[in-house]
């Protein structure tokens, strides 16, 4: 099933979560498309950046008022980016937004006769992380140990509701995207907060394989899903993998490796008392066992590869965080100069 834009699709696009970096970027990309008449952005808080010709509507998608917006504007395409992966506050409101918000939104979509297409941002976290996982997940793989907490569980539930809508509205084109961890300018996620810890805690004896997706690539995938026809579920990640140890060394961060139980205890204490909102049990599982996605289905469908590999995406992040080198390396470089052997 492939690509050409069917006539009459994506006339009025609604983007949820538009006040966060991903939503704002996607809205900006969509409004640049002359074929799209209106881009409507919704969120519970006002946007921090200017959105151009995107019309901002402050609406809580947890309430039925989202249905009014969809019906009155005759929205035909919904790009649902509201999955909150990193709540700064408590867990309960985050779950509300993720699960109840999606239910309300999907209920509105089901009712609206103008609806033609739904693009949903999900997360690779739905695959979980366990020592019994296959090395690489394809879209058809079921999690070996289903996520039991946090946003990973929310993402599983969101996907369940999306599948429910697909059964009831088989005329809709539904694209479900499982993103690896976003990284890039302006991205604030549990991961970026984790890397900003004064000392990066790692689980002793484990060095997981990680994958990242650059914000630019994520925006491009979402844009193409919104304006073209690509029904199905797709993994999205930069090519290649990085080990956690490599990532930390590339970021030049000091680390402390502790047994799993100690990391869990400290992380939990940090979350409760020191405001480490990045830490969660599912983050720790990911930082213990890692996860790698097979992205060949997306590459074949879009005949496109991400501009940033996992490595390049991370390098871009490091460059933004830490423009200068770090001390241990200068020592080595100095030594190498003394030896005089490095002539490259």
């Amino acid at each position: 099933m492939s690509s050409m834009r069917a006539s009459g699709t994506a006339r009025v696009v609604l983007v949820t979560g538009v006040s966060r970096p991903l939503g704002a970027r996607v809205a900006t990309a969509l409004q640049a498309d002359p074929g799209i008449e209106r881009v409507i952005g919704v969120d519970t808080v006002p946007p921090t950046t200017t959105l151009g010709r995107t019309e901002f509507v402050r609406v809580d998608i947890r309430t039925p008022s989202i249905a009014k917006v969809i019906a009155s504007a005759e929205v035909d395409t919904v790009v649902h980016l509201n999955l909150v992966t990193s709540s700064t506050g408590a867990r309960a409101p985050m779950k509300e937004i993720n699960v109840i918000g999606t239910m309300q939104l999907l209920a509105a979509c089901q009712r609206s006769p103008h609806m033609r297409k739904l693009v949903v941002r999900s997360s690779a976290a739905v695959y979980g992380s366990s020592p019994r996982d296959p090395a690489v997940f394809t879209e058809d793989d079921e999690p070996v140990e289903a996520p039991s907490s946090g946003y990973a569980k929310d993402a599983v539930e969101v996907e369940g509701y999306v599948r429910g809508l697909m059964r009831r509205r088989s005329d809709l084109t539904v694209s479900l995207l499982r993103f690896a961890n976003f990284i890039g300018l302006g991205v604030d996620s549990p991961l970026t907060r984790y890397f900003r810890m004064p000392v990066v805690l790692t689980v002793l004896g484990f060095d997981p394989r990680l994958q990242f997706v650059h914000l630019d690539d994520g925006v491009e995938v979402l844009r193409r899903m919104a304006v073209e026809e690509h029904p199905g579920t797709y993994n999205v990640a930069g090519d290649g993998v990085l080990l956690l140890s490599q990532a930390i060394r590339r970021a030049g961060r000091p680390t402390l490796a502790l047994p799993a139980q100690a990391v869990a205890t400290i992380g939990d204490m940090g979350r409760r008392f020191a405001g480490w909102s990045g830490y969660s049990a599912e983050l720790q599982r990911w930082l213990t066992y890692g996860r790698v996605l097979d992205t060949s289905k997306l590459a074949a469908e879009l005949t496109w590869r991400p501009k940033y590999s996992t490595e390049a995406a991370f390098a871009d992040y490091v460059l933004a965080e830490r423009p200068d080198g770090d001390p241990p390396l200068t020592v080595i470089d100095r030594l190498a100069d003394v030896v005089g052997g490095i002539r490259r």
Binding site: A135, R209, L242, Q246, A247, L329, I332, A336, I342
Partner: peptide, 24 residues
Amino acid sequence: RELAAGLRFLRRRLVGDYEVDEFG
């Protein structure tokens, strides 16, 4: 030369400048 090669190697490992495949 050996020392330089050793330092180069150490540098690569310290900055994480090596590649692993999808299986690690």
